[in-house]
Nucleic acid binder design. Structure first.
Length: 207
DNA sequence: GGCACGATTGCT
DNA sequence: GCAATCGTGCCT
């Protein structure tokens, strides 16, 4: 059953945690008729309105991040490193600029490529810039509770850690806002981030 | 208009 | 450890 918009309209940390075990579904239109399904096993929370400097939205709306400022339950897909896409779910009430990044999936149906890692899962699921802004309560791309319902989700043993690849965000990078299924072998392996000077304080008050 | 850098990945 | 590769956002 498709998750309703109310599910996404809640606190981002809660949504990030509860998305673990849910199924991400993407269907192709017309005669192409394909269907790809992956079980979410790793997520990260980003809270723009709270000043989270790791969030794309922390400075305010721009053409690129505008979807994050819109209503919850929509896909925020962005292009990075000149070659990759990352998939997020917009959370909390409009203007809160919060989202959950989906970082890894366990293949369930129609997936033949690797799904461990935010960019890899987008490639495997066929998610690209055309999915940006898509309503997750619509007929093309959505998240649903798998068969077995709440009982199945309850079995997820949730692990937490700091978010990956956001060292530039200073103290915000230390927050344990990454959630993962401790029993899944599809969780992305966090590459060793520069564990050097813990304090990279920059005071760029130029403007 | 220019330029540094990224919510990554893969190869050396 | 570093290149690939280009859109975005901040700067001159």
């Amino acid at each position: 059953m498709k998750l309703p918009r109310d599910f996404y309209a809640r606190d981002t940390l809660l949504v990030a945690r509860e998305l673990l075990g849910m199924h991400l579904v993407h269907v192709g239109a017309g005669s192409a008729g394909w269907r790809r399904v992956g079980r979410i096993v790793e997520t990260e929370a980003y809270k723009g309105a709270d000043g989270d400097r790791a969030a794309h939205s922390w400075r305010g709306p721009t053409p690129r991040n505008r979807v994050m400022f819109g209503p919850p339950g929509h896909a925020y897909v962005y292009f990075v490193y000149g070659m990759h896409f990352c998939f997020n779910v917009v959370t909390e009430p409009e203007e809160r600029a919060c989202a959950v990044l989906v970082r890894a999936l366990e293949p369930v149906e129609g997936l033949s490529e690797r799904t461990s890692g935010p960019a890899l899962l987008c490639r495997a699921m066929g998610i690209d810039r055309s999915c940006n802004g898509v309503d997750l309560c619509g007929p093309v791309l959505w998240i649903e509770e798998p068969g077995g319902g709440a009982a199945a989700r309850r079995r997820v043993r949730v692990g937490r850690s700091a978010r990956i690849g956001v060292d530039y965000a200073g103290a915000w990078a230390q927050r344990p806002w990454r959630f993962f299924d401790r029993d899944s072998t599809f969780v992305s392996t966090a590459r060793r981030s520069s564990a050097r000077s813990p304090r990279t304080t920059r005071s760029t008050s130029s403007r």
